[in-house]
Design a protein around this nucleic acid. Structure first.
Lengths: 108, 108
DNA sequence: CTTTCATTTTAATGATTCTTGAAATATTAC
DNA sequence: GTAATATTTCAAGAATCATTAAAATGAAAG
């Protein structure tokens, strides 16, 4: 992950509809969810969902693949991890206090 | 941290100038840096830096305080921590793989 | 109290981004 | 092939955001 990619990822997550889609796909797990279900899940029109799914895909936080007549979207967990890692290491200069907020049952 | 606050934080970090200011302030540590130095540090005009510093301040990732005739900006480490925590827990559903990328010397 | 310095605000402009609905594409089923 | 389903693309308009330079604020120094 580099600065440019991180900016695209931040932009991808800075819109309500997209953040909700992202959450939805993370919760769907590695099998993902088709475009129609995603749209329904966040209450967006197919066209609107498609627009936002494209932005998320461009950010690499999400990927897509065609399966029969539907297209499946999936959260890209590895890239999501790389993104948080970049943020913590590069943007937050590895600050220990911030890092402490990442451990489960932490004190934040 | 809630969804709305997170969206503001993501938007704050989704612009190059602002991301660089953020990085600059994190590296400046708890003492912060005055507006002029931040502007110079990222190569932006005072007015442009002020505009972006205002956005960062509104996101609570950064705070400001007047000191004599200059105004000091500081990274708000606690809020930054709360932001990553929110992202990991709420948006990433506490996914263990993503969380693993946060530990130093990790395998990501 | 006037000047100087640091910063913010404003206003104008251009550039992106979002939304909507209609039309286009592509895949499967009949 | 024709119809039905799933998704994307397109075009138009509204809304938001970023940049610039100039003017305004506000604090301190002479």
């Amino acid at each position: 992950m580099n600065e440019t990619e991180a900016l695209v990822a931040f932009a991808a997550l800075s819109n309500v509809t997209r953040l909700r889609i992202f959450r939805d796909l993370v919760r769907a797990g590695p099998n993902g969810r088709n475009a129609g279900d995603v749209a329904a899940g966040v209450g967006a029109s197919p066209s609107r969902a498609s627009f936002h799914l494209a932005a998320l895909t461009k950010s690499k936080l999400v990927s897509s693949s065609q399966s029969a007549r539907e297209v499946i979207y999936r959260a890209e967990f590895d890239n999501i991890g790389a993104f948080v890692q970049y943020f913590l290491e590069d943007c937050c200069a590895n600050d220990a206090g911030v890092r402490a907020c990442c451990v489960g049952g932490g004190k934040c």
